[in-house]
């Protein structure tokens, strides 16, 4: 996604720049800025990293290093609805692997890749801190599903398909 063929980009970059200006000068803000950038753009493309690097006056190598170090940051576009399956021990013991398997079957997609319609992508995450509700699936930022059984998977997905 480059600036030229993205009609929204200018607006999005403006939003990001406003945030950067508000925190610039404080120490150690890179990670917070990347959080914001990913929130706005969905993922951290090379252009975007270049932009952050220039705005914050931090070497691109360092920005790239941070982006690739942390699990939360992604350099690839994700599905509109990111499905995070917790594979922490507590969820694993309660059958999280079977949920993952069912999801991949249903969506016919590799891990971390968006589906062909761009609607979903599946990500394995470590503990989401809701172990009493294991196995846990998180869709987007707020839609937690607890004690999920493999048979509920398609019902859950339908909810998001219908929303389209």
């Amino acid at each position: 996604m480059s600036l030229v063929n993205c009609p929204d980009c200018q607006r999005l970059y403006k939003e990001l720049d406003e945030y950067i200006d508000s925190v610039k000068g404080n120490t150690g803000v890179l990670i917070n800025v990347l959080h914001k950038a990913q929130e706005i753009f969905g993922y951290l493309s090379e252009e975007l990293q270049q932009h952050v690097s220039e705005k914050l006056d931090i070497p691109l190598s360092q920005v790239y290093g941070v982006v690739t170090f942390y699990n939360f940051f992604s350099m690839k576009p994700k599905g509109k609805n990111q499905i995070k399956v917790c594979l922490g021990t507590a969820c694993y013991v309660k059958g999280a692997d079977k949920i993952l398997e069912r999801l991949r079957d249903e969506l016919n997609v590799e891990m971390n890749e968006p589906t062909s319609d761009g609607l979903f992508s599946i990500h394995a995450v470590r503990c989401l801190g809701a172990c009493s509700m294991a196995p846990v699936v998180l869709i987007g930022e707020d839609d937690y599903y607890g004690r999920v059984s493999p048979d509920e998977v398609s019902k859950i997905l339908d909810k998001y398909r219908r929303a389209e």
Binding site: T27, G28, V29, L30, I31, Q62, Y70, F72, V125, R126
Partner: peptide
């Protein structure tokens, strides 16, 4: 931003410094 090692106190400090 999702790194278990950041529970280690010096790694955590590095992370707060934005690294």
């Amino acid at each position: 931003a999702g790194a278990y090692v950041c529970g280690e106190e010096t790694a955590l400090i590095e992370s707060i410094e934005g690294k």
